[in-house]
Simulated assay, not measured.
Amino acid sequence: MIPTPSRSRPGPLPGRVLGLLLALAVLLLAPGPAVASPAGPETASAPPRAAGFAAACPAAGYISQYYSWEHNGIDVANDYGTPIHAVGDGEVTISGYEPGYGQWIRILHPDGTITEYGHMYQRDVRVSDRVRAGQQIALMGSEGQSSGPHLHLRVWGNAGASVRVDPIPYLAERGVDMPCTPGSGPGPALLVYPAESGRVVSARSADG
């Protein structure tokens, strides 16, 4: 009698084989790789540049000359005696006479920038005065190297007065579009003090 092989149930799979099968199942069930967008990864938009202060309109008038490398500011032309206002809060560091500027004023603002105002016929503030945005500081004139009544507005980007800045974008970043009308828009209210109190710095004295 020829013996027949016995049929038995298969035994458990070896551990190595079982591990390979489990790894294959994980790969088959895992989601595919993310497809990059044609526009590239999304990035948060850069926040708008924070201005140092909310500015006030310096003077009514039209722009008779714009900023350039040959002209270090902008000229706002209007009639003699047109009020000139401080662009922002700050301290008066210069108020006096200079041959090119005529009567001129320099204001240092808390954010470290400087605004200068030239060719005035009358100055209403002295050195060390603290002024507010929108405060009247002078009256428009045509002193110094000037061919007609206007405000020469110059801006420095640092307290050391060594970095020139175009006044138009400087003001726009602070809420004032040139040309402008003093007292209009959301900016600071106009302040007539100290002119209404009778305080006037002589138009010819160089007290700064």
Rank of each mutant, 00 (worst) to 15 (best):
P3C: 11
T4K: 11
P5H: 04
P5A: 07
P12C: 14
P14T: 11
G15H: 14
R16F: 13
G19K: 07
A23E: 03
L24E: 09
A25M: 13
L28T: 03
A34P: 02
A36M: 09
S37N: 05
A39H: 03
A39D: 06
A39K: 00
G40Q: 01
S45Y: 15
S45M: 14
A46M: 14
A46G: 10
A50G: 08
F53E: 03
A54T: 14
A56K: 08
C57S: 01
C57P: 08
A59N: 04
G61S: 08
I63G: 00
S64M: 06
S64D: 10
Q65H: 07
S68I: 04
N72T: 12
Y80A: 01
Y80D: 08
D89G: 04
G90C: 15
V92C: 08
V92I: 11
V92E: 00
I94P: 02
G96W: 07
G96F: 10
G96P: 01
Y97V: 11
Y97C: 02
G100N: 11
G102K: 03
G102Q: 04
I105E: 01
P110L: 02
P110V: 02
T113P: 05
E116W: 06
G118V: 12
Q122L: 10
V125E: 05
S128K: 08
D129G: 09
R130K: 10
Q135G: 11
I137F: 08
I137G: 01
A138Q: 07
L139H: 14
M140C: 07
G141Y: 07
G141L: 09
G141R: 06
S142Q: 13
S142C: 09
S142P: 02
S142W: 09
G144R: 01
Q145I: 02
S147D: 14
G148E: 12
G148M: 12
P149L: 04
L153R: 07
R154W: 14
A161G: 10
A161I: 03
P169C: 08
L171T: 12
A172K: 05
E173R: 06
E173W: 05
V176N: 10
D177H: 14
M178C: 13
C180H: 04
G183F: 13
G183N: 05
S184C: 03
P188E: 04
P188A: 08
L191W: 11
L191H: 11
V192I: 15
Y193T: 00
A195W: 00
V201D: 04
R204T: 11
S205G: 09
G208K: 13
